[in-house]
Simulated scan of single mutants.
Amino acid sequence: MKICLVVIGKTDANYFSEAIREYQNRLVHYIPFEMQVIPDIKNVKNLSENQQKEKEGELILKSLQAGDYLVLLDEKGKEFTSMQFASYLEKKMNTVSRRLVFVIGGPYGFSEAVYQAASEKVSLSKMTFSHQMIRLIFVEQIYRAMTILNNEPYHHE
């Protein structure tokens, strides 16, 4: 199984990019991981929120491959502790045959078509974070889960 994180737009802040790269480099020792960046939608000033969600949704759905298991990072999703998330990933590693794809949507969330295509929704917090921050937090949590599953000292209870 491979984990893929799909995001809308590039990470602008260098300090986030560097930190994300650090955790990506750490992750490759445990599991195949990739971050797929969908370019920002052009001329968003001329689009309604719904039109923007629809356009982003089309690009998200195009990025999927046959057999992908789609999980949306969504404020209404299931919340986990880090230990629970590690168990969740372990179960997925045993049941998902191809790619476990997590998606961070655009500023207005997901289109209805993306919600329909998703198997699950996961929330990282009841709080709202910038899309740049969520990328870093989520990649770190995947790394943390891998260290938990391998009984390594990164995570402390």
Results as ranks from 00 to 15, higher is better:
P107D: 09
S48A: 09
P39C: 11
N150M: 02
L149V: 11
R144L: 03
S63R: 11
I8V: 14
R98W: 11
E90G: 06
Q52V: 13
K126R: 14
S87N: 14
N25C: 08
L64V: 07
I31H: 12
I3H: 05
Y88E: 03
Y23A: 02
Y15A: 06
Y143K: 03
G109K: 10
K78C: 04
Y88G: 07
T128G: 08
Y30C: 03
S63D: 07
V139Y: 01
S87F: 06
S119Q: 14
A86G: 08
N43I: 09
R144M: 05
E152Q: 15
E49S: 14
I20Y: 01
Q36T: 15
F33N: 07
R99G: 02
Y154V: 03
E157F: 13
V101I: 07
I104E: 09
Q36H: 15
H131T: 02
L27V: 06
R26E: 10
H155A: 05
F129I: 06
Q132C: 05
S87C: 10
G77W: 04
K45Y: 00
E18Y: 09
M93L: 14
D40R: 01
L47C: 06
M35N: 04
T81I: 11
Q52L: 15
K2Y: 03
F110R: 01
S97N: 14
E18M: 08
Y88F: 15
K92V: 05
Y88W: 12
P32H: 01
K91R: 14
P107F: 02
S48I: 09
E54S: 10
G57F: 07
Q36S: 13
I60V: 10
V122D: 00
M93N: 09
I41E: 03
E49H: 11
E54Y: 00
R99N: 14
N150Q: 12
E58Q: 13
P107K: 10
L73S: 01
K121W: 06
Q132K: 07
K76N: 12
Y15C: 00
S130L: 02
